[in-house]
């Protein structure tokens, strides 16, 4: 006969030794890996830029400063929405969380405007590499944002459902697993937002 534990039980055994939640740790490791990814992209840019014969210089479009502001706003809103959730103030949580979601979409829109500005100054995707790099980096970062948005959408759907269903909402308080999941999501947003801030500063100094 198979002796079968549910997954919840399987994990239960540990943690007082390291005090680290193993699944949170997973997320940190994943962030280390993503950092290597963006590190590789920016290193590639530095290597290519050193080749001054082919590198065409220009100024970074100004839209990107606004998208940076938007992405910071996402982080701040996410942070406060989590605090409200912990306090079980779901009304306020829903508002902040939804605005954060919209801001993240706005961020993507602004990045797109950035591409349009690039095109306007003649830096097309398949033009000089100096321009191509901006498309490359923004789109691969944007892909991470899209994944974040998709996961956020699930949380948003839950939040909206609980507005109509008070019993479901109450079960949120009783279910710390939900808080934990939200914490993981918010951590991811902080990370991926910080990556953009890094990328912005990096690009700003490389495109003078």
């Amino acid at each position: 006969m198979d002796y079968t534990l549910s997954d919840k039980d399987v994990l239960k055994e540990r943690m007082e030794y390291t005090g680290v939640h193993p699944q949170k740790f997973l997320l940190w490791l994943a962030m280390a890996s993503m950092t290597m990814f963006f590190g590789a992209l920016t290193s590639a840019l530095i290597v290519k830029k050193a080749d001054i014969q082919t590198w065409e210089n220009f100024r970074l479009p100004t839209v990107f400063i606004y998208s940076t502001i938007a992405v910071v706003a996402v982080s701040v809103l996410m942070h406060f929405s989590l605090i409200q959730y912990r306090k079980a103030k779901f009304g306020l949580f829903r508002v902040l969380f939804s605005i954060a979601f919209v801001m993240a979409i706005l961020f993507l829109g602004l990045q797109y405007l950035g591409w349009k500005q690039l095109e306007a100054i003649g830096m097309t995707l398949d033009g000089n590499i100096s321009g191509s790099f901006i498309y490359l980096i923004t789109s691969l970062h944007g892909l991470h944002i899209v994944i974040g948005l998709l996961i956020t959408l699930i949380f948003l759907a839950n939040a909206i459902r609980s507005r109509k269903d008070p019993i479901y909402e109450l079960s949120n308080i009783a279910n710390p697993k939900r808080v934990f999941n939200l914490e993981m999501l918010v951590t991811f947003w902080h990370y991926i937002d910080a990556v953009w801030v890094y990328l912005y500063v990096f690009l700003y100094f490389n495109y003078q």
């Binding site: 002796y3 079968t4 534990l5 549910s6 919840k8 039980d9 994990l11 239960k12 055994e13 540990r14 943690m15 007082e16 005090g19 939640h21 699944q23 949170k24 279910n175 710390p176 697993k177 808080v179 934990f180």
Partner: peptide, 25 residues
């Protein structure tokens, strides 16, 4: 953190607790 994350089924630490009586799901 741990009780928050895992408080849903068992509240006490069962690191060396008896596992024989878990629900055979």
């Amino acid at each position: 953190m741990q009780t928050v994350a895992h408080g849903d089924v068992h509240t006490q630490d069962t690191h060396h607790g008896d596992h024989g009586h878990h629900d055979h799901h």
